[in-house]
């Protein structure tokens, strides 16, 4: 982990691309400007963070901007981890894809698209990956209904019959 000072130095180097730094429980997080995500990741890769361990999405409902995308970077020579975070509004959830730099992001960006509806521009094959092709909606968003089937158990059969009457 870069320590708190290291994180500030890193943010200073990135200039206006870095919006905020969070150092919490030895975990360094850098909040960046969404349009500059690719150049930020390229700069960090040049500094040694050459492994993209994970890309995932978050829904911060009811905070705005709602959707978040997190990139977990790893410097394998120094065993150093860094989280890059960006926030996009739900009515224009567009982020530039990083698949040209990190091919491993391919399926993970598809998953974020499938579950949260974040559109990755420049992704060569942005389809749903977990849900069926014709599924409507993005199920991991906080305002998406949990869904499921009402199940008739014998223990609450009486309750069901009451409701029907």
């Amino acid at each position: 982990m870069p320590d708190a000072t290291g994180l500030e130095l890193l943010a200073a180097e990135l200039g206006d691309a870095a919006l905020e730094t969070v150092y919490f429980r030895e975990q360094a997080t850098l909040v960046v400007d969404p349009p500059q995500i690719r150049s930020v990741l390229q700069a960090l890769r040049a500094k040694g963070y050459s492994f993209l361990a994970s890309v995932h999405g978050v829904d911060y409902y009811p905070e705005e901007p709602r959707l978040g995308v997190l990139y977990e970077l790893l410097d394998m020579s120094k065993l150093d981890r860094l989280t890059i975070k960006l926030r996009v509004p739900i009515d224009a959830p567009r982020v530039e894809s990083v698949t040209t730099d990190w091919p491993t992001a391919d399926h993970q960006e598809r998953e974020v698209y499938d579950m949260f509806g974040v559109v990755f521009e420049g992704h060569r094959d942005l389809r749903r990956i977990l849900m069926p092709e014709d599924y409507e909606g993005h199920p991991q968003r906080r305002d998406f209904p949990v869904g499921g089937e009402p199940v008739l158990f014998t223990r609450d059969e009486a309750k069901w019959l009451e409701r029907r009457e």
Binding site: L130, M131, P139, F144, P145, V146, G147, G148, E149, V151
Partner: peptide, 13 residues
């Protein structure tokens, strides 16, 4: 049978 603990958007009985 009843979707158990995974009674959500993804499963079908």
């Amino acid at each position: 049978s009843s979707m158990g603990v995974f009674n959500n958007y993804a499963l079908v009985p």
